[in-house]
Design a protein around this nucleic acid. Structure first.
Length: 396
RNA sequence: GGGUCUGUAGCUUAGUCGGCAUAGCGGCGGACUCUUAAUCCGCAGGUCAAGGGUUCAAAUCCCUUCAGGCCCGCCA
């Protein structure tokens, strides 16, 4: 989310430098640069570099992450989307004028293009021995602090671009997310599912229980809601005769925000005619397993310090059985009042409404309907995990 | 919604049983031609979140407000 009050603090000394460069006729924001190599390509191609400068030259570009100035020579780390590489710049090589220009006007955060030859320093670092520099984009905001980096959680969420600049894990998470979306679409497409874009502005919202965001259409003189789920419209497509439909849907819910809940979030909903929950469970198992395998090349992943195995077949059980296994409570052996009391003994808030809502599972289970994951988690939260290990749910 | 913790220089922070506002990074000036958070010397930089109160004296104690983190509840 973007905070409308967010003010970006331009650094005055940087703005002064931009102005000074303008006055000197230097183009601070040129339109293009003929980059011949990405940083990763250079690092791969010159993995065997020695202390001797390469005969082949390279031309690359990126953002300056740090500069180590040694007087008549300096080192800098240049990074593009693919990787980071060290630059070695000497007054003797690029000339006094260019060298002074760099010292005076180019700083951390700026984008530059460089050409040069590759070698390995005494300390073993693959480095570009630079022979020319072009300023490509002057940064007017300072980069986050070089040693501590950007750790402030609020800032990381509010200013994701900063997080992405300096935290490679975040960049990796974003890459994975993009890949997941592509793979979801490919997986379902290969199985004959069609994706549709259903209305986001809805006159009547439904498909979930949540408070909506409200908007208004001037021409229709009508209140409209941002959808809280795509369900009802996807079902209409099934009514219309499409037998396998899905949507990667952005939904909007006007509710509490925390690290796991955003007012706008994406979900995948799938509808499949002539198939029951057993088929959907099988599809889901295969679907998730395939995604994990394609992205990680493994079915065992570490999440929040816990190893999670996606190896099929997954354990499948009813909500009632889950409560029995993890909380040690047989919900069929107790009255609603007993269940409330048991929940409270475990330090959980629970009234009859909770139990009725959450444990309509009594009837659900009796009819052997699917254990809904959300329902399962809610049930276990309400009745508490006696073993105190909610993470094990992730394996279940 | 309930509980709890936090807010000090551009950033990261010390100081929190009241007594001159700390340091590192960054910035600016200077030295340095193989460094890795380079190093060394110097300088500038503060409405201690905001407002009120107690006190000779408040970053520090009290009250109110604002912003945020974490835990619980709820939703995905």
């Amino acid at each position: 989310m973007t905070d409308p009050e967010e003010k970006i603090a331009f650094d005055q000394t940087r703005l002064d430098k931009v102005r000074a460069l303008h006055e000197q006729g230097v183009n601070v924001y040129p339109h293009e640069f003929d980059r011949r190599d990405t940083v990763q390509e250079i690092k791969t191609r010159f993995a065997g570099a020695t202390h001797e400068k390469s005969t082949e030259s390279v031309v690359t570009a990126g953002r300056l992450y740090i500069i180590r100035n040694h007087g008549k020579t300096l080192f800098a780390d240049l990074g593009d989307e693919s990787a980071k590489i060290q630059l070695y710049i000497r007054k003797n090589d690029i000339g006094e004028e260019k060298f002074n220009f760099f010292n005076q006007y180019i700083e951390r955060g700026d984008f530059i293009g460089v050409s040069g030859h590759v070698f390995r320093t005494k300390l073993g670092e693959i480095t570009i021995w630079v022979d020319s520099i072009t300023l490509l984009c002057k940064a007017v905001c300072p980069l986050p602090e070089k040693f501590h980096g950007l750790k402030d959680i609020e800032k990381r969420y509010r200013q994701r671009y900063l997080d992405l600049i300096v935290n490679d894990e975040s960049r990796q998470t974003f890459r994975v997310r993009s890949k997941v979306l592509a793979l979801i679409r490919r997986y379902l497409d290969e199985r004959g599912f069609l994706e549709f874009e259903t209305p986001i502005l809805q006159p009547v919202y439904g498909g979930a229980n949540a408070r909506p965001f409200t908007s208004y259409h001037n021409f229709l003189d009508q209140k409209l809601f941002l959808r809280i789920a795509p369900e009802l419209y996807l079902k209409r497509l099934v009514v219309g005769g499409f037998e396998k439909v899905f949507e990667v849907a952005r939904n909007f819910r006007n509710e509490d925000i925390d690290t796991n809940h955003n007012p706008e979030f994406s979900m995948v909903e799938i509808y499949w005619a002539y198939h029951d929950f057993e088929d959907m469970m099988a599809l889901t198992e295969n679907f998730i397993t395939s995604l994990v395998w394609e992205i990680l090349g493994s079915l065992d992943i570490m999440f929040a310090g816990t190893k999670i195995s996606f190896v099929a077949p997954w354990k499948k059980f009813s909500m009632a059985d889950a409560v029995k296994e993890y909380a040690g409570i047989d919900i069929f052996a107790h009255s609603v009042e007993d269940l409330c009391r048991l929940a409270q003994q475990c330090g959980r808030q629970a009234g009859p409404a909770h139990v009725h809502l959450r444990f309509s599972g009594r009837e659900l289970t009796a009819r052997k309907e699917a254990p809904h994951k959300g329902g399962l988690c809610r049930a276990l939260r309400t009745l508490h995990l006696r073993h105190g290990d909610r993470k094990r749910l992730l394996r279940a």
